[in-house]
Design a binder for these strands. Structure first.
Lengths: 202, 202
DNA sequence: GTCTATACGCTGATAGAC
DNA sequence: GTCTATCAGCGTATAGAC
C-alpha cells in the first residue's frame, strides 16, 4: 500500500505551514530559519522550496490561509445572525474562544508585524475579515442599535477592548482564560464604565 | 573653535538613536543593518559599536529611553491631577497628541514585537508606564468613579479603544488626526455605545 | 516529486591606523 | 575616541542525483 506511506501533497503543505506558524509566533519571522522549519516539519528543504518557492512564500501562503479561515468565521456569523449588535457579540465570543483554543493563529494575526515579510504595503487591518467587522458596526449604527457616532471610533471602542484583552492574554499578562471575561467586556462596551452617581444636587 | 566642530558625545548618542528609531519603525528591526544606521546618522560604524556595543545594544538603549519618556509623562499626570478618572482622560489625550506629533515613538512602543530583539522574556506591557496606567483604573474603581468591574477588563475597555485608534492611525487606516476623535472615544468608553432605546412596551 | 550537499551574498562585528 | 577596511559566520536558495 504505497499510497499510505507517501503523504498527500496537501498534508505536506499543512505540515510545513503548521510548523512555520508555531515557529514564527514563538521566535518571530526573522529568527526562524528554513532549516528550523525543515527540522520541525520533518520534510526536506527541497520539499519546502518546491511547494512554497521561498521562506517568504511560506509566510505569505500561511497568512492568506489564516485570513481565509477568519473570513469564513465572520461570514458564517453575519449570514446566520440577523441583528448587527448580536453579530458583533458573536464575533468577539468566537475570537475569545479561538484565543484559548488556537492561540498561535490569533497571535499570528494580531501580534505579527506583517510588513516585515509581506511585500508591498499590504495591511492586515485592511484585509477582508477586519473590513467586515467594521461593516457590522456601521450597520448597527444605521439600524439604530448603536449610538450614532463615528464609525471608526465606534469600531475601535467595541473591538478595541476585546482585542486588547486578546493581546494581554497572548502575552501572558492575563492569566485566566479570557472567555471568562466575555460578559464583562460586552457589558462595558455596550453600557460604559462610568459609575452611576446619585443625581448630583448642587 | 574645535569644541564646535566636534559633537558632544550625548549628541552622537541621540543622533544614532533617532536614526535607529526611524529606521526600525519604517522597516522593522531585522530589515535594518548597522550600515543603514551608520548612513542615516552620519557617524561611523566604529562610533556606533563604541557607544552601544552591538546592534541589539542600540535597540535596547533606545527602548529604555522611550519607556522612560513615557513613564515621566504618566507620572507628571498622576502627580498633577487628583481624580483617577481625569488622570485617565489626560493620559489618553497625551497619547493621542504624541501619536500625531511623534508617531515613530508611539509606533516603536505599540507596534514593535520587542521579543525579537530584547533578550529574555521582557514584556512591554509589563513595563512601568503600562503598570501605572492600569493602577489608575484600579484606583478609579476603588474610589467609585468607575463601575466595580474586573480591573483587567476595565483597563482593556478604557485604554483598548484608544490604543486601537492609535494602531489604526499609525497604519494609515484612519486618515484624520485622532485628536479629533478624543471626545467621542472618551464618551463611548465612559457611557457605552448602546443606543438609548425608547422603553420597550410589550 | 523528493532529497542532500553546496554556493553565494549579506551582515554583525573586529582590528588596527590616526 | 573615531575612523575605514576586512573578516567570519550564517542563512537563503540552487544544483543535480535519485
Amino acid at each position: 500500500m504505497p499510497f499510505l506511506t507517501k503523504n498527500a501533497p496537501e498534508q505536506i503543505d499543512m505540515k510545513i505551514m503548521t510548523s512555520a506558524l508555531n515557529l514564527f509566533v514563538e521566535n518571530g519571522y526573522h529568527n526562524v530559519t528554513v532549516h528550523d522549519i525543515q527540522k520541525r516539519s520533518g520534510v526536506s528543504i527541497g520539499a519546502i522550496y518546491h511547494h512554497f518557492g521561498s521562506k517568504e512564500g511560506v509566510a505569505t501562503k500561511l497568512f492568506n490561509h489564516i485570513i481565509n479561515e477568519l473570513e469564513q468565521l465572520i461570514s458564517t456569523i453575519t449570514e446566520t445572525i440577523e441583528s448587527p449588535s448580536e453579530q458583533c457579540k458573536e464575533i468577539i465570543k468566537k475570537l475569545f474562544e479561538y484565543t484559548e483554543s488556537k492561540p498561535n493563529i490569533i497571535a499570528f494575526v494580531f501580534h505579527a508585524k506583517h510588513t516585515e515579510f509581506l511585500s508591498g504595503d499590504y495591511l492586515v487591518y485592511n484585509s477582508s475579515p477586519f473590513i467586515k467587522m467594521r461593516e457590522v458596526i456601521a450597520k448597527g449604527i444605521e439600524c439604530g442599535e448603536f449610538l450614532e457616532t463615528d464609525k471608526m471610533a465606534a469600531s475601535s471602542c467595541i473591538y478595541g477592548g476585546a482585542i486588547r484583552m486578546i493581546q494581554l492574554r497572548l502575552d501572558g499578562i492575563i492569566e485566566k482564560p479570557i472567555t471568562e471575561y466575555y460578559d464583562t467586556i460586552i457589558n462595558a462596551a455596550w453600557s460604559g464604565l462610568k459609575a452611576e452617581t446619585p443625581a448630583e444636587v448642587s
